[in-house]
Structures are given as structure tokens and as C-alpha cells.
Amino acid sequence: MQVTTILFSSLVKKYLMAVTGLIGVGFVAGHLLGNLQVYSLLGGADAFNAYAYKLHHLPYGLLWIVRIVLLATVAVHVWMAVLLTIENKRARPEGYADNSTVQATYASKTMRWSGVILLAFIIFHIAHYTTRSVPGMKYNETIEKVPLMKEGKPVMQSGEVVMTFDAYTMVVQGFSNLPVSIFYIVAMGLLCLHLTHGVSSMFQSVGLRNHSWQKRLDKIALVYGWGIFLGFISIPISILTGVVS
């Protein structure tokens, strides 16, 4: 059979959706673990800034490799979602008067909407904390550099203290803005919803699920989704309530 026929088949789109989804699932877990260092129990300001410094000084241009892979992942995930949506709409030109469903979950029926809002969130999030170019939140200009700390002592390089961007203060200032924090919390709620369907669904799409594993994977997806949700929202909530400052 022609390779192109296979490449453009419905199932390859699903495989790409699942694989890019898996990369995303792994990324959010790593991202959460990194973020949790804002808590003094898990490191606090010095550890958080040192972590940010480390990411920005990875060898072999790894930071950019990871960034490009992640952006490509999001691009493919969205591209496949668009293709699937267009084709699926085309497959039912005339809808039902009664749109009842029997067992489809709320999460599965709202993947498109949670996905679209999450895409908007990702764009805002990158502008907010990575490129720091949201008007009125240009932290580059207002936040001063701080010494890079290691085990409680400033890191010295050729007789001088190494200075680094104060990412910790950036996060605290960023989440002190109530509307921004609310947007983050809502977006994480949608991410939770997206994950509760996606984490189990991606196994089905690549054929690694059966009836008994479906039950387990659905539970794993639920726990994972809630874990990610509670973990991420704890940070803006802690900052707004003054637990982290």
C-alpha cells in the first residue's frame, strides 16, 4: 500500500495526537516539580532561582532544543486536532434533533473547548513568564538581579559573585495580580479536564488498552489530572494568601 495513504489515514492522526499528548503529559509533570521549589520546604527563593539559572545554562543549547521540541509538539497536537475536527464535522453534515449521549464523559465531549482555551493559556503563559512581554508586566525592567546561591552561599566565578534573574520575585509579583491568577486557576482546571480524558485515551489510540486496563487507566488519568491541577493552583493561591511572598 502507498505510504502516503497510510500517512494521511485517520489512525496516524490519532497516533500523532497520542504521542504528542504523552510528551505534553510528561512535560507538565516536570514543570510542576520544578515550580514546587517556590515553597521554602522544597527549596524556596534561592533554590528556585538556581533552578531557573540551571535551565538557562544547560549545555549544548539543550534549552532551545527542548523548547523547539515542545513547540513542535504543541503545533502537531493542535494541527491534528484541527484536521480531526474538520473531518469529523464533515462526516455528519446533518445533526440529530436529540443529541443525547449514553456514556461519553463531560471531559471527552469538551476536549475541543478545553484545548482551544489551553492554547490561548499557553500563549499567554509564555508571554507572561518566558518572553516577559505582557504590557504592564515587563519584569525585565523592574526586577533586579540577585546573587546565585548554592547551599546558602553566593556562587563566585573569577572573583565575582554570579548574578541571576530573580525568577522567584517575578512569580510572586505575577501571581499577586488577582485576574491573572484566576485565569491560571481556570486554565489549570481545564487542563485537569483535558488530562482526565487524554491520559487514558492516548493508550487506546496506540492500541495499548483493553477493558480491564481501561478502568485502571481512567483512574490513573483522574488522579493525574487532579494532581496536576492541585499542584499548580497551590502556587497562585499561596501567593495570594501570603503563604509564599
Partner: peptide
């Protein structure tokens, strides 16, 4: 390969794991 490609060519939609069919 043949059955999936015929299914696609007929214009059916793509499975997104709703589970309504089941």
C-alpha cells in the same frame, strides 16, 4: 491496511475515544 483506508475513503469520521459506539 485495506479496511482502514476504505473506511477513510468512504468519509467516516475519526475515532476520538468517546465510547458511545460501545
Amino acid at each position: 491496511l485495506a479496511m482502514v483506508s476504505t473506511m477513510d475513503a468512504e468519509g467516516f469520521g475519526n475515532c476520538t475515544n468517546y465510547g458511545e459506539c460501545e
